[in-house]
Design a protein around this nucleic acid. Structure first.
Length: 282
DNA sequence: CGTACACCCTGGCCGC
DNA sequence: TGCGGCCAGGGTGTAC
């Protein structure tokens, strides 16, 4: 599911029920996610108070009053479901693939569900987060001040890898996945096949704001729902209706006056959707 | 460093 | 109705 807009939407949705809540019970139904849960995961969290929820890249960070931070990644198919105390049936409302459940002192449930188990959780002391191997080599947040054409051109200088793949590399910029990279490159009129180091400053000055625009619009739409993804209340995102290229192979390009069809290619084992005309692909 | 690929896992969809 | 093959939003690790 989750690229930056989806993770951001989930994180925002968690705050009303989780901010300030005390975890009165933590249930681990499966500890073998992509990586095993840390030892004593449930015991270390039980009785602890949540002081802040935030997002870094595609990770949700849940900061606890004792200084520990829970790191959550949703992988491809992970979901967070919130079930308010008032909405609960008498029996515990758990379903298949509900792997970890946090129950707050208010009786609300936060359920981590992930059919494919590509997602995972970890814990670390909050002051060691930046040196954690997951975060150490990360590039800038695309919606933050550190993301700008000058920085990007420095990171991409001399790189022969295709710009599509370079933008998926979280060392260059975080939070982008297959959907939003395809969409942003289309919006900027840049071929996904260009060598990253060959992309001109003029093109990067177009690309950076287009990346930011597509991400902001997707957040406003509550993310994109293809299959698994839903907001924490079960509502679906609707940015998928705004896709210009993703998943539209063989359909007409929506650019006014362009009569081309959207094409699909495989780069690094993953589908790239693009307009050969608008993106100047020979 | 780049590329190509396999792999982690489940489920949905398509064609037969 | 069933089965095999293929596909999927992410990320890591290997060999060459």
């Amino acid at each position: 599911m989750p690229e930056l807009p989806e993770v951001e939407t989930v994180c925002r949705g968690m705050r009303p029920l989780l901010d300030g809540a005390i975890l009165s019970e933590v249930i681990v139904r499966r500890s073998d996610l992509r990586f095993p849960l840390p030892p004593d995961f449930a015991a270390r969290l039980t009785g602890q108070q949540v002081v802040r929820l935030r997002r870094r890249a595609k990770y949700i960070l849940m900061e606890m009053a004792d200084g520990q931070t829970v790191i959550m990644h949703l992988g491809m198919s992970g979901r967070i479901k919130l079930i308010a105390a008032a909405d609960q049936p008498s029996a515990r409302p758990l379903a298949k693939h509900d792997h970890v459940v946090f129950i707050t002192d208010r009786g609300d449930y936060l359920v981590y569900n992930d059919p494919r188990r590509f997602g995972f959780m970890d814990m670390c002391a909050g002051d060691t987060l930046l040196s954690h191997k997951l975060f150490r080599d990360m590039g800038p947040e695309p919606l933050g001040n550190e993301f700008h054409p000058n920085g990007l051109t420095a990171r991409l200088a001399g790189r022969k890898v295709a710009i599509k793949q370079a933008l998926l590399d979280q060392k260059n910029v975080v939070g982008l996945g297959n959907i939003y990279v395809c969409e942003a490159l289309f919006e900027a009129g840049i071929s996904p096949f260009m060598a990253a180091g060959q992309v001109t400053m003029e093109q990067l000055e177009r690309l950076v704001p287009r990346i930011q625009q597509v991400l902001r619009r997707a957040i406003e739409a509550g993310g994109s729902t293809l299959k698994d993804y839903a907001r924490v209340d079960g509502e679906l995102g609707y940015f998928q209706h705004s896709f210009r290229v993703y998943g539209r192979e063989g359909e007409a390009c929506k650019t006014k006056g362009c009569s081309s069809m959207i094409a699909r290619a495989v780069q690094g084992g993953r589908s790239t959707f693009y307009c050969p005309v608008c993106q100047h692909v020979d």
